Computed example of a mutant assay.
Amino acid sequence: MSRFDAITFDFWDTLVRADVAATRVQRRLAIAEVLESHGLPAEHDEIDASFDEAWKRFDASWGLGEQFTGHHAAETVLEVLGHTDDEQVCIRVIDAYLSAPRTMELDLTENLESTLRVLKGAGLRVGIVCDVGLTPSPVLRDYLEGHGILQLFDHWSFSDEVGVYKPDAAIFEHALAGLGGIDPTRAAHIGDLRRTDIAGAKGMGMLALRYRGVTDDDPDHGPEGDVVIDDHAEVPAVLGV
């Protein structure tokens, strides 16, 4: 019998493969269409420059643990492009920025669904602890629903809903409470990033699994996981199920 009652998963590059370039293209096209419909210049180079500034601000805020959401990013785009005075333009650009990723088809990581079903079959509670980046959590849930696996999760803790980023203990506490008040020592967390996933899980006293099936995080970025895996199929054995 496993000594674990629950496991939480990171989202980007742990559950779902991120496609930053494709997301950027979708957003650029959507925003250009809005601007053109209002008779405004829609140079792709200028839109890309506004995206660069939004990402720069996000990355700085994320590192400091200060919330910077997709809505903030869209406001930055408007600021850089100089279109903050027209309310309708602002509303439509913000909506385009936030909703454009919905049209994308992103891949699950290898052996994820089968692993989730094994864990659920063994009686473990399964959750998500995710720093959403610049894509709102409803869109992330839609991705999982589209792949038919949303129902395999008992609870989710997204940074734009909880209000903090990993490695803050509050987002892990939110997850463990939502999974039924799980003792951290009887829970595991799996994710790809040392600074957020591994440091946060270790700080809680959870078993920290670093997943390198998509990316192999730089050792300088934080502590190593208690266990390092390359394939989700390894998880049940690690947890003793």
Rank of each mutant, 00 (worst) to 15 (best):
T185K: 15
V139L: 02
E173W: 02
R17D: 01
A199E: 15
S157M: 11
G222H: 11
E79Q: 14
C90V: 10
Q151W: 07
D10M: 10
G82D: 04
S2L: 05
I94Q: 13
I31S: 04
V126L: 10
V93F: 11
I190C: 13
L179N: 14
L239K: 10
F158K: 03
I47W: 03
M206Q: 09
G178T: 04
A199S: 15
A199W: 09
L124P: 10
E53Y: 04
A233N: 05
S157L: 13
G181R: 14
V162T: 09
I128W: 00
M206G: 06
H174K: 13
R194V: 01
G65W: 08
L106R: 13
T135M: 10
L209I: 15
A22S: 12
A187D: 12
T84L: 01
P219M: 09
H189V: 10
G205D: 12
G191S: 10
D5N: 14
L116R: 09
G133Y: 09
M204I: 02
L144W: 08
F51V: 02
S157Q: 12
F158P: 05
R125D: 02
T196L: 11
R28Y: 02
L150C: 02
S61W: 08
V80C: 00
Q26F: 10
D52V: 07
A237I: 04
E46V: 00
C130D: 14
L15G: 03
T215C: 08
R102I: 00
V162G: 06
Q67F: 00
S61G: 09
H83N: 07
P101C: 06
M206V: 12
D231W: 12
D192Y: 11
S137L: 05
L35P: 00
A237Y: 07
I128M: 03
G180I: 07
E234V: 04
D52Y: 02
R212I: 14
T115K: 07
A187L: 10
H174F: 08
V93H: 09
I47A: 04
R3N: 12
V16D: 02
A237S: 15
V227S: 04
A208T: 08
A233I: 03
S159Q: 08
L64R: 15
D216W: 05
A188Y: 11
D230V: 10
L98I: 03
W55P: 00
I190H: 06
P167R: 05
L112T: 01
I94F: 01
G163Y: 05
F158Y: 13
D131N: 15
V126M: 04
L106G: 05
G213L: 09
E43L: 06
L116M: 06
E161Y: 08
V80A: 02
R194E: 12
S50G: 02
L29N: 11
L176W: 08
F9Y: 07
A21N: 09
P223E: 06
L35T: 03
D86G: 03
A100V: 00
C90T: 05
L35S: 06
G191K: 12
F172A: 09
I128N: 03
I198Y: 11
V241P: 03
A208E: 09
T196Y: 15
T84I: 02
D168T: 03
P101V: 03
L179C: 14
A22E: 14
L64K: 14
Y211H: 08
T103G: 15
I149D: 00
Q151E: 15
